[in-house]
Design a protein around this nucleic acid. Structure first.
Lengths: 211, 211
DNA sequence: AGAAAAATAGTGGGAAAGCACTATTTTATT
DNA sequence: AATAAAATAGTGCTTTCCCACTATTTTTCT
């Protein structure tokens, strides 16, 4: 029994490195390596892997979107998200979509193989640090806010704020009223636990919402 | 003639992947892989590589410090900085210290090998994108501001701004008047070419003035 | 010692951000 | 089809930010 694994990562070092690491294991067969989300979606039909190692931060498509589309095409595929960031908000989102694993890039060979085998057998695998963070997060959110997830519009507004636009300029750009922008801004301050613009920008950068 | 190469990177996937990639080339011999800066410094005497592939963002030591210490121990070693960020300020710093190469992690196998061979033969190697950015940066700085240098007080104020303090709060903290803080803030806006608080925070983070 | 740069403090005014609300319409989700 | 979430828009108000000045004192450098 060999597990068919595919890799999607735009960093050749990571992608090729992973492939070489996995090639050493007899139980695993790397059937494809993709550099972009679109490449992967187009060609996935020919490789039909059991497990996909998916980088969160691809240049062309956002992680959650890509995962959703992939699952639509191959509903039985197991996705392990590969990332160097450990932002719990993103982890939650990916798990909600239906990903079975979440690995930080500083995992060693054995952990990766273990993760692949676990999800292949119907299990779930999270990097220990992430698991811990999720638990901590649950405790926190019970006491305070469960709504750390930003909406589409809030993200747009936040991004424009980091680009040094004023509320009025943002309103013009999005064809909405100044008041609406102000409202979004207030929600952002609340959700991100920030005091002012400075805090918003910091959180935006921390959460990878900039550039 | 084989080139002795060592790797220092805290991400096992990257480190092991790199090793496996380089093992395929006969002209290169990977003599050591280190996960932390301190490990590397301690054990570097036994491996004595010609070229070091050095990750910028190690958990224990800052990139510039580590490079300096490494060069003190092995003055003839060639260092290629490996990074996923392409912040020109950091690139400049590392080159100034005496690193010979700067590679983005999304370089492919051949580029990496080429970089190793180039620096081994006394040359310099930069990822094309970085090279371009450095050139652009030079042009910019010649046309406009040579005064990107912030004063002691300006840096203090900027740091407090990123910590979400208001001008009044900053004034109280530094035992100066609100007006003085306001003045520093204005200089910061000018010097950093920012429009507002959002811009200040972005620049502060870009230039590594936060945390 | 003298010049230059930095830090200090001020006035006055306009623009922007932030807060606390209410309220309607549109979009998702089930 | 019903409910919840998100997006929209508003009022009124206060605080903070940003700008353009002037001006004095303190540090730093040559």
């Amino acid at each position: 029994m060999t597990i068919k694994v595919a890799i999607t990562d735009d960093h050749p070092i990571v992608a090729n490195g992973l492939k070489k690491i996995l090639d050493d294991f007899e139980s695993i067969n790397v059937v494809a390596v993709y550099a972009t989300g679109n490449d992967m979606l187009k060609q996935i039909g020919t490789s039909l892997p059991d497990v996909m190692l998916l980088d969160m931060n691809l240049p062309d498509l956002e992680g959650p979107d890509l995962a959703r589309q992939l699952l639509k095409k191959l509903p039985s595929i197991k996705i392990i998200v590969l990332t160097s960031s450990d932002v719990t908000v993103q982890v939650k989102k990916m798990l909600q979509i239906g990903c079975q694993g979440y690995l930080l890039k500083d995992s060693d060979d054995k952990t990766i193989v273990q993760a692949i085998e676990t999800v292949y057998n119907g299990g779930q695998f999270l990097s220990p640090i992430i698991q811990q963070q999720l638990v901590n997060d649950m405790f926190k959110s019970k006491n305070q806010k469960q709504n750390t997830l930003l909406t589409r519009r809030e993200k747009e507004v936040l991004q424009l704020i980091t680009q040094e636009f004023t509320n009025q300029e943002i309103a013009d750009k999005l064809f909405i009223s100044l008041h609406t922008v102000d409202n979004h801004r207030s929600s952002l301050l609340q959700k991100l636990d920030a005091k002012n613009t400075a805090g918003l920008v910091k959180k935006a950068i921390e959460n990878g919402l900039v550039e």
